[in-house]
Structure formats: structure tokens, C-alpha cells
Nucleic acid binder design. Structure first.
Lengths: 215, 215
DNA sequence: TCCGAACATGACACTTGATTCATGTCTCGG
DNA sequence: CCGAGACATGAATCAAGTGTCATGTTCGGA
């Protein structure tokens, strides 16, 4: 059940060490070029120049510019998932995980702005891969939230759609804060931002005539 | 203090009724074409064909494809602002306004998917106009939230950055739900979605050992 | 009704960049 | 250390689309 059409399947991987090195150089150059100049501006010529190889070499490893984008989106997915898993590993509960995850996400965006922008732009280059990226994240999120509901760590959702909605809301929050404070204002101290966000995630906007959450 | 550089300032507006009609036809065609096919695919040729005018006519009213994008982003800003103002006019308080605004936003996206997509893609065509779009929205949002804090309708932010963070979070929520349920799943009933979202905005994720909010 | 300005046309000159390919060079298992 | 496959080159090919312009047509005020 391979969902990927043959034209979009990646080219076979290199068979020698040299090949792998070259492929990686191109991928890294593409990440920088596309991330900084945008997909339209980043030509195969500038990418290969940046990578220090000839233009034709590009087509040994990739069918097209879009091909590298797909690859980079998958790469970001793996990286980010790993990063978040590590960051939230020792969270005490789901609310704690939300805070740690958000902080880690903002840190990730600041450290990899190019890659992050590539993923956002992928929406307009190959929507399928972009959707898949977020749909998969949403799925994991939904599962984690549902488990936390069951454990009583967060308020139970009124329905299964409610849990899905929450997952997308939380992703939207991360993405927007990532854009605003990760990309556009990369020097602002993260703590107050994460504090404010975590507080709202935990308690919403309603006024506070309520007991503090128990540990 | 005009921030717009001369190359980006729009061409002078048409002076006759005929001109205005033609300009509008091109703008509408561009909205559809760019929204559906994306900026790269939508050529001036396809836009003018769709509008039913000659290619050269395009350049009477716009300097370039990017020029129309800028215009469309501003247009969306005005439309949406108007739509939201109307929708939230008789909100009882800020939380009510959030719910009404979100519902209105999702409705707007479903009714204008092309325009909405154009705005999102503008990020990669003219980042300045995209930033301005969201920064302006954030400003209005911040002001509304601060006022509501003062009125005691929502929990006071711990700092001025907290209010700003909340504004961006709420925008992120709208944008992501707009994408997921406005664009990708345009038939799903909105009520349960808006309910779930409004509940989380009002009360966050924390478990419910708390008094119900008073009217 | 008439005239200058405004608007419309569409062919085309020009730029740009993606992709191919014929010709080498390297790598590595045997 | 040899040869076949793997990899690398970059000039040439090819496709597309932008923006221009010389030539009409329409508008609207006087």
C-alpha cells in the first residue's frame, strides 16, 4: 500500500560513500537556498553552486527541485519528532509536556529557520506532503491527548472531534508562536513567552475564580 | 511617512468606469487563478485569459503578478476585518466575541478559499505585506484583549508580552482550524468544532475542578 | 460632435532557468 | 590493480512566461 506515485518516489539512494556525501551536500545546500531565498528564487544552479557541484550532478540524485522539497519535509518531520520526544520525555504530565514541547519547538525553529521555512513553503509546492506532515503530527497529538484525558490530567473532551480540534489548536499555537518569536523575533527571551503560552493552554482565558491546579 | 517603496506602490487607479471594471475583472481572475493553481502556476497569460482581456492589458493596471498579490492581501484584510467586526458586534463579552469571531472566520474561509490561500502564499512572494497583515491583526487583537482584561472579562495577563503572546496564539488557532476545517474539510459541521475550540479558549486544558463561569 | 486622454490589443523580443547528454573520472569488489 | 558500474561535468538544448510596444478603439468633457 505505497501511497507515493512513481513520479514522486525518490530516486534510488547512492551506492558509494562518495555518492552519499554528494547527495547530502546538495540536500543541505537546497535547505539553505530554498529556506533563505524561497523556492522560486532558489534555482538548481544556485543550489549546485552552493553545494560545489555541477548542475548535472543534481539530477543524479533528484528528479527535480520539488523532489528535494519532499525530502526536506520528511527530514524535518523526523528531526522535529525526535527533538520533541526527547524534550518531553521526563514531563510529569500532559500540561508539563505541552510546556516543554512548546519551548523545544521554539528552540528548534530558532536553530533551523531555513528548514522550517521550507516546510511551510512546501504547502505551495506539493500540498500532499505538507498535509501528510501535519496530519501525522495531529494523529500523534490526538493520541497523546486522549491518553491524558483518560488519565485525568486534562479536561475530558466532549467528543472525539473535540480532541482532534484541540490537537489542531495546539499545533496552530506552536506554528504561530514559532513564526512570531522563532523566525521574526529570534532574540526575544523565550521564558516569558513560554510562560504566557503555557498558562493559557493550561487555564484558558477565563477569569481566575478557581482553585489552583493540584500538583 | 509612506513605508511603501516606489516600486511597490500600486499603479495609479483607473480614471474611467471602463477602466475600473477591467481592473476588477483582472483582480478577480487573479484571485481565482492564484488561489487555485498557486502563484507559480498562475501566469499572467492564464489570468488575463480567465479575465477575458489581452495580456498587455494586465500591465496597464499592475506592475507584475506580485503587485496583484499585494493588492489581494490588502483586500482580504479589509474584507475579513469587516466580516469579523460585524460578527462580533453584539458579543456580550470577550469570550463571546472569541467564539463568534472564530465561527465567522471559519465561515469566511469556506466562502473565500481562494482569497485565503492567496494570503497564505503571499508570505513567500512578498513577506513584508504578509507580516504587515498579521501584525496589524495582532495589534487590534492585543488592544481588544487588554481592554477585556481591564474589564475583568478574561484573566489578566501577567505582562504586556503575555497579552501579545495570547493574541498570536488565538490567531494561530484560527488559522489552523481554518486550514483544517475550512479548506481541507469544508463540509464538516462547524458547531461541534467551534464548541470545542471555544471551550478550550475559555477554560484551557486543565481539569475542571472549578466553578462554572458566571454569565 | 469632436478631440485628447484613457484604455485595449496581441504579437514578439528577451530572459531565465530546468533538464539532457556526451564525455570523462572515480570507486571498489574480486 | 583492473574493469564495470557509479558518479561528475558543464555546455547545449528546450520550454515558458514576462513585459514591451506599435497600433487601434473607446470614453467623456467641452
Amino acid at each position: 500500500m505505497d501511497q507515493v506515485s512513481p513520479g514522486k518516489r525518490p530516486l534510488p539512494p547512492p551506492k558509494t560513500g562518495r555518492g552519499e556525501t554528494t547527495r547530502r551536500k546538495i540536500l543541505e545546500a537546497a535547505q539553505r537556498e530554498i529556506g533563505r531565498r524561497g523556492f522560486a528564487e532558489a534555482s538548481v544552479a544556485t543550489i549546485t553552486a552552493e553545494a560545489g557541484v555541477a548542475q548535472g550532478t543534481f539530477y543524479i540524485y533528484f528528479r527535480s527541485k520539488e523532489d528535494v522539497m519532499r525530502e526536506l519535509v520528511l527530514h524535518m518531520g523526523r528531526m522535529l519528532r525526535h527533538h520533541l520526544t526527547e524534550a518531553t520525555a521526563k514531563a510529569k504530565d500532559r500540561l508539563d509536556a505541552e510546556r516543554l514541547g512548546l519551548r523545544a519547538f521554539l528552540g528548534f525553529v530558532r536553530k533551523n529557520p531555513d528548514l522550517y521555512k521550507v516546510v511551510e513553503e512546501s504547502q505551495f509546492v506539493d500540498e500532499a506532503v505538507y498535509r501528510q506532515y501535519y496530519t501525522e503530527f495531529a494523529k500523534g497529538y490526538r493520541i497523546a491527548l486522549a491518553a491524558a484525558e483518560k488519565r485525568g490530567e486534562i479536561a475530558p473532551g466532549s467528543s472525539s472531534v473535540a480532541t482532534e480540534v484541540r490537537a489542531w489548536m495546539l499545533m496552530g499555537i506552536s506554528v504561530f508562536l514559532g513564526q512570531r518569536y522563532g523566525l521574526w523575533d529570534p532574540k526575544a527571551p523565550l521564558e516569558p513567552i513560554v510562560d504566557a503560552a503555557a498558562a493559557m493552554i493550561a487555564n484558558g482565558l477565563a477569569p481566575a475564580a478557581r482553585p489552583a491546579r493540584r500538583k
